[in-house]
Each structure stands twice: as structure tokens, then as C-alpha cells.
Design a protein around this nucleic acid. Structure first.
Lengths: 136, 136
DNA sequence: CATGGACCCTGTAGTCACTATAGGGTCAAG
DNA sequence: CTTGACCCTATAGTGACTACAGGGTCCATG
């Protein structure tokens, strides 16, 4: 005992690199359970909150949606369950990421070729504008 | 003359691959000028609208924001102006795209290694959950 | 003991680029 | 004259926050 730390929202924000408003937002959408309140009605977080919020932030950094994170947290609850469902969510997300990368690379190529054709004349003969304009 | 075509919103939507609601949205945010109205209060578009909307859609496909498109359209207006500013917007956007690709590729690597460590046991020993959880 | 400033509270509106719905009106074919 | 496809406006919802406004709390300093 004695190592139980309690944090107010600002301290939790600092500890997890999250904005205070974002923490309140996660509470509103039930990703974070509502914490106890102090005499002055301040939110009072414990280490379970810290762990859960860290998990959420890490998953967000990896691009999981809040919906996916909700599912992961639910799955993580039942430690006896097979982790197949966890794997499915992660792989599904990897697929999304791969698709986004491919889209952006295609776009990048096209954008690059459009820019490459600009000879810095005036707008009337600008190849960028032309490339965007409808086919005559 | 005689080739002047008039389109109602559904025909314009089909011609540009845009949803009807999206066209009305572009009008609301002043990207598309409000068209003339028919006797029955239907929007009536001409070829200038078709051209402008095609431009917008093409630029959207290339990932330009509506704000950037607004700027491009303003620039395209003045055909005598140097197209340097156009080039700046396009290059700025290319930079954003490059940054997004790099971010996603880094994320992809990390996600892939997290998934690679999952040995399909139960959740208690799931490496994916573990990788997301806070550092002990 | 009073005051100031850093922190906290709730509630609401704004962001981006749409998308969806409700509740109606118009038009052309059969 | 009815049916059904189309159109109209206005409003709310999406995701994931962010940014106020208008207050309350806490505590260190004078």
C-alpha cells in the first residue's frame, strides 16, 4: 500500500500527453469510466484510469478509431478469451492503413506530375490549373 | 449557339459524379455560385457550373481542401497573373501528402510488428494488447 | 485574512466535408 | 388523375476532438 497515487485531470493529462478537454471527451463517450470526485467536485483519477488512458492514446497513435479501441478494451477485459478477435481488429486496421498508403502514393504521383509541368508563366497557360480543369 | 445545355441538379450530379447533397453543400459554402431557378424553383445549371464543379471534384480527388480549392479558383480567375501562387499551393499540398505517407508508413511498420507477435493464445498473453498497454 | 492566478467545473458551439433525415413541392408518363 | 422519380428547405448527425463562456476551487503570497 501507500503507492496508490491520485491524480487530478491536469496531472493525468500531463502524464499521458493528452489534453484536458480530450480526457473529458473520452469520459463523455464512455471510453474512460467517470472517476470519483473530490470535495470541490474535481475529478480524481487512480492508476487504473492512467493505464486505460495510456492504452487509448497508444492505440490512437497507431490510428485505431475510438470504435475499434472500445472493442479492443472490451476484449482485453476477458483474459481467458482467445485473442483471435484482437488479431482480426488489428489486421483489419493494417489493411486500412495499407489502402491509405496506396491511395496517397497514387495521388502523390499525379500531383507531382502536375506540378512538374508548371513553367511559371501566367495563369492563362498554367498547367496546374489546366490539369484540374475539365477536359475541354 | 444552340449548344448551351441546362442541367438540373440530378443531371449535374450524374455528369460530375457528385452527390446531389454535396452540390447543395458547395453552394451553401460559396464554392459554387447559386444557379438560376426554374419556374418550379429547381436549380438550373449551365456549362460554367459544370466546369467549375468538375474542377472542384478533380482537386478534391487530388486531396486539396476546400480552402485550397477556393484559393486556386480565385487565382484561376485572373488569367494575367503569374501562376507562382498556384505552384506554391500545389507544392505545399505535395508536402502534406509526403508527410502523411511517411507517417502512415511508420505506423504500418509498428502495427505490423505488433501483429507479428500475436501467437493466438488467450487475451492474458496477447502481445497486441500488451503492446498497447502502458509500460508496466 | 484577502487577493490573485492557476487550476477545475458545466454546457454549448465550432471544426471539416460532407451525409442523412423529415416533411414537403414539382413534373412527366401512363 | 395518380404514381413515382425527382426536387426543395431546414436541421441534425458523423469522428474526434477543440474552443469558448461563465462560473467555482485551491493555495501561496502580501
Amino acid at each position: 500500500m501507500a503507492t496508490e497515487k491520485f491524480l487530478n485531470i491536469g496531472a493525468l493529462a500531463k502524464a499521458t500527453g493528452t489534453k484536458v478537454e480530450t480526457i473529458r471527451w473520452y469520459e463523455r463517450v464512455r471510453l474512460l469510466p467517470a472517476p470519483a470526485r473530490s470535495a470541490g467536485n474535481y475529478r480524481t483519477y487512480d492508476e487504473a484510469h492512467l493505464g486505460r488512458l495510456s492504452f487509448i492514446r497508444r492505440a490512437r497513435d497507431l490510428g485505431f478509431s475510438l470504435e475499434q479501441i472500445r472493442a479492443l478494451l472490451d476484449l482485453a477485459e476477458d483474459r481467458e478469451r482467445s485473442c483471435e478477435a484482437v488479431d482480426v481488429i488489428a489486421r483489419e486496421h493494417l489493411g486500412e492503413v495499407d489502402r491509405k498508403i496506396a491511395d496517397l502514393q497514387a495521388l502523390r504521383l499525379e500531383l507531382d506530375s502536375v506540378i512538374g509541368q508548371c513553367h511559371h508563366g501566367n495563369v492563362a497557360e498554367c498547367r496546374i490549373i489546366e490539369a484540374l480543369a475539365p477536359p475541354k
